[in-house]
Amino acid sequence: MGRAEQLRVADFHCDVLSKLQASPHLNFDKDSRLDVTAERLAAGGVGLQVFAIYLSTVRGRPSFESVLGQIELFQGKVLGSGGLQWLRWKEEAVELVRVPPRWGLLSLEGVDGLEGNLFYAQLCFDLGVRFLGVTWNYANWAADGVLEQRNGGFTEKGRELIEWCNSSGMLLDVSHLAPAGFWELAERSKRPFIASHSNVAAVCRHPRNLSDEQIKALIAMDGRMGLTFVPWFVKNGGDAKADDLLRHIDHVCSLGGTRQLMFGSDFDGIDAWVEGLEHPGKYAEFAELLLRYYPEDQVKGWLYENAWSFLSLHLPPKLNDQKIP
């Protein structure tokens, strides 16, 4: 077994729950119509996968009912038949260093489905969601997304959401958030946040990628930045290969972000793929590529340990009177 095959991987973003909700006949175990399957996670050495609750593919207005539907799918198809364990608490993060098991963690991509109701946010937390991406690409009740031309910050209700997240232990994700919202959150939040699936704007000009100033702010707060495998975020023109990600890695490291870098593939949220990174089973080959250019301790950090260290510090603790459902 080569060095790369022994390295564990944490992937901080995929959209397979949305596909499973839209097409209930799909089989999470090993359906080739999905990017992310239990079989491919095992083949790629993925020890932690973050599953986004993404409602853009749901017909009609995003609703809390659809959020609950994807949580139910996660419990039934991912944890049940897929054989993953559910990561929710700081105490459980200690177990991430063990091999096996494999773990799944829930995030919400865009708070539209919470319908402006912080009680729904609390229910999500109680049901095991641990990250909130404030927006998708456009405006919602909390803030503006990155493609909203006015580039607004947070609404009054959105500011209440920030306060609630800081007090409850829900962690925040700025991928898709407009720049004005990013900087407002950096000022208002008492806790570090992440960009789960964003790349470097200085390397590839796309509005979803982060400026050097944003990356430096994430580094300064010891947040995390998950490089993503969306081809048009990796290379101008979108004809990208796995090697093209090295320029993004080098740039983040040049800004001082070696310990803040991780990966968030966006598998099942894309309809074109980086050559050599078509699904999570390719992570072992990607690790081999990284090991040709970088020291093993850095590669381990980017693939897994940087994500693990953030979770072990910032996931909420399980209080004695809390019962894990």
Rank of each mutant, 00 (worst) to 15 (best):
M1P: 09
G2M: 08
G2Q: 03
R3W: 09
R3C: 11
F12V: 02
V16Y: 08
S18A: 15
K19D: 12
K19Y: 07
D29G: 08
K30E: 12
L41W: 07
V46R: 02
F51H: 04
F51Q: 12
F51T: 09
L55V: 12
T57P: 12
S63L: 15
F64V: 13
F64R: 13
L68E: 08
G69K: 13
I71K: 04
L79W: 04
G82N: 07
L87Y: 00
R88K: 10
R88T: 03
W89L: 06
A93L: 01
R98F: 13
L108V: 02
G113T: 09
G113I: 10
L114V: 14
G116I: 15
G116D: 14
L118T: 03
A121L: 14
L123S: 14
D126V: 10
L127Y: 06
F131A: 00
G133C: 00
G133K: 08
V134S: 00
N137W: 08
A139T: 15
A139N: 12
A139C: 14
W141F: 15
A143Y: 10
G145H: 02
V146C: 00
K157A: 15
K157Y: 05
I162A: 02
W164C: 09
W164Q: 00
N166R: 09
S168G: 00
S168C: 04
M170Q: 05
L171S: 04
D173A: 05
S175W: 08
A178H: 05
A178R: 11
F182L: 04
E184C: 07
L185Y: 06
E187W: 11
I194N: 00
C204S: 05
C204T: 11
C204M: 05
N209L: 09
S211H: 05
D212P: 05
K216N: 03
K216C: 09
G223F: 10
R224C: 02
P231T: 13
G238T: 06
C253A: 10
S254T: 01
R259C: 06
Q260T: 00
G269T: 05
A272K: 12
E275K: 13
L277M: 01
P280V: 07
Y283D: 03
L290R: 01
R292I: 04
V299S: 06
G301P: 01
P316Y: 08
N320P: 15
